[in-house]
Design a binder for these strands. Structure first.
Lengths: 141, 141
DNA sequence: TAGATACTTGACTATTTTAGTCAGGTTTAT
DNA sequence: ATAAACCTGACTAAAATAGTCAAGTATCTA
């Protein structure tokens, strides 16, 4: 299992944004330079974040992005959801409620994968952007 | 993040194997039929499981595979390790100890990804094949 | 001892996903 | 006006995935 860079970048960029989010909006250009993420790629990512109301955009010269909610209200879940980073352990989710792989019973390990998904999603549900920033300040590196 | 089918199949096949593992070895052909996994693919997977001493092979007519350890000694970690299913959250692991992305400091979210990896690996460390079989019998579906 | 069963290995490949790039906009502060 | 910065959609190279295919080797059973 691995995390895609889209999800990882989204979180990195938002932490960066939250950190520099004082009076002026933060430009993607700055984030791009600080975090070493391609500007074009960032634009794709922020377009999705904006559609999910996680950030707000300010157009024009000296524009940029601003958080649209308080940092403690933005969970990892929300971020990953916005950029389509999903936790997928089975294919058999969407099929008939009864069984998997076209069979009548659930596959032998169905419960396991469900548990795993929940285990991971719990983690994402508990972590907020605020937690990340705090952790960052404390470590100061 | 998603689980690859190689990892998923490995676990499914081992649960199947453990379930039918009485006196005779279990043939891959049977597992293939019961679980709907391609025989050729299963062979690849079991070759790896054998190299990591998770199963033992019995060649010849009426041959097949047998667990090489007790079911409670086989953790998900061991299985995933055998088939190269790894939990990867960052690219910056192998780089210089000090920083990420060629920088001097750790990336803003490095700790987070570490935590996430540990969180997931904990789950794999705790679940044994025995747990899965028990769960299966209790549910009886 | 012939033959069938089943393990063993390695190479090959189509498909999908990822991780972007690129081009051509539009908006707005100064 | 013009530059900064957002905005959008299409495109693509490279990697990973999910297998298939071919050609074995070992050993049980009749």
């Amino acid at each position: 299992m691995k995390l895609t860079s889209k999800g990882r970048y989204a979180v990195m960029a938002l932490v960066d944004l939250a950190k520099f989010n004082d009076i002026n909006p933060v430009s993607l250009r700055d984030i791009s330079l600080r975090q070493g993420i391609s500007l074009d790629y960032l634009e794709q990512i922020f377009s999705k974040l904006r559609k999910k109301a996680i950030v707000q955009s300010v157009r024009g010269n000296q524009g940029g992005y601003v958080l649209n909610k308080k940092a403690n209200e933005i969970k990892l879940t929300n971020i990953f959801d916005a950029v389509d980073e999903k936790v997928k352990t089975v294919q058999c989710k969407k099929e008939s409620k009864k069984g998997c792989n076209g069979k009548l019973t659930k596959c032998l390990t169905h419960n396991l994968w469900d548990e795993l998904e929940n285990h991971i999603n719990d983690f994402f549900e508990k972590k907020s952007l605020e937690d990340l920033i705090k952790d960052n300040i404390e470590r100061r590196i």
